[in-house]
Structure formats: structure tokens, C-alpha cells
Amino acid sequence: GCFRSTKTSKLPRGEDPIVLASETPFTVNEIEALHDLFKKLSSTIVDDDLIHKEEFQLALFSNSSKQNLFSNRVFDLFDAKHNGVIEFGEFVRSLSVFHPYASEQDKITFAFRLYDLRQTGYIERVELKEMVVAILSELDSTLTDEAVDSIVDKTMIEADLNGDGRIDPEEWKDFVTKNPSLLKNMTLPYLKELTLAFPSFVLHTEVPD
């Protein structure tokens, strides 16, 4: 055990980089680089190896008190155990969906869960409208309620093929297959270049891929 004994000790207890690498598109080296990133993000406010919501907001918006509907949804999905913080394993497994080599089905499912605001198993029309209103207010738009309804109605007509007023997972899959640009933000090219993005790690690692 010349490499495990010296290099895996810095990861949080219970998280084996080899196991994480086997469950995700990341290599062991990339898991270690992600841990460097995680350590940085989890120590900006409270240095406790956990990403608190304020630390997540600080990383996303450079402001620990700024949040929006979508950053809250992303945080909630990353916080798989729903205990109010993101642990390292949750961080790695959630980010793995955003890897350029992650399966398209995983990206489609993650995006669906993101937009299924109330976790009913459907993206309801009311949820779609809530998201449109949230992004428009973020953009300081002053569209009328009628204009917002027309955006929402048009998208529902395209996506809700069975016309029951909500988008189910199969309809979502059809819709993003026809509109692949909708999955663009589900891929982070950075994740393919982690060891380049955090080269400090490469200098001191001896873990083979």
C-alpha cells in the first residue's frame, strides 16, 4: 500500500478515492484534485470540510448572501442527504453528472429533477412559470404577466405532448432530444481538465491513474 497509505489519508473519512473514481467518470487523480477544490470551497466561511449554503453562494455569486431559485435547487440536489451541507462524496457524485463523459441520460434526469421544483415527479406548468418569472426578475425584465404566460404556454405546447398540463420524464427526454442546447449547462468542460486547473496537486501526487 505505498500509494493508498500516504495519499488517501487526506480525504474525509469514509470516502475512498478509488471507490469514487469507480462510480464516476473521474480518475483517482481528478478525485484528489476535486478534493483540493472542495477544501477551498468548504473553508471560505467555516473550515469544516463541509460546503455550507453561504459558502456555495459565495463560490457561485462572489457574495455569501446572494441566492436565487436555481442556486437553491442546485444546492438541494447536491445535498443528497438533506442535512443542509454538501459533503465531499455528495460534491463528487453530483459534479460527475456535469462531466463531459457522463451519460446523456444522467444529465437529462438531473436537469429534470432540478426543474421539478416540488419533486412531484413532473414539471408542472405552475413550476415552469415560477422559473420563468424568477429568471426574468434576475434579468430585470418587465414583461407583462400575459407575455410570461405566452412564453410558458408555447413551451408547454411543445413539451407536454399528452396535454395533461405537466411535463413527465418521458416528455422531458423527448423535448431535450429535440432541443439539445437545453443540456448545455449540464456539462462543465473544466471537469475534463481538473488536474490542469489545479496543477498544485499534480506536483505532489504520486497516485497513478
Binding site: 462572489s62 442556486s71 435547487r73 442546485v74 420563468v132 429568471i135 410570461v148 462543465l188
Partner: peptide, 26 residues
């Protein structure tokens, strides 16, 4: 903006809250 031709999800996906690349910036 041309609201009637806009795809709601396309609009939503532009939210800064969904842009996780910021996590990788210093």
C-alpha cells in the same frame, strides 16, 4: 426579446444560479 418564440427552458438555463463554472474560478 421576442417572448412568443422564446423557449422557456432556454431562458431558464441562462440563470447565473445554474452556471456552476463559477465554482472553478478563483
Amino acid at each position: 426579446m421576442a417572448p412568443v418564440t422564446m423557449n422557456a427552458f432556454e431562458l431558464i438555463s441562462t440563470s447565473q444560479g445554474l452556471n456552476l463554472s463559477s465554482l472553478f474560478e478563483k
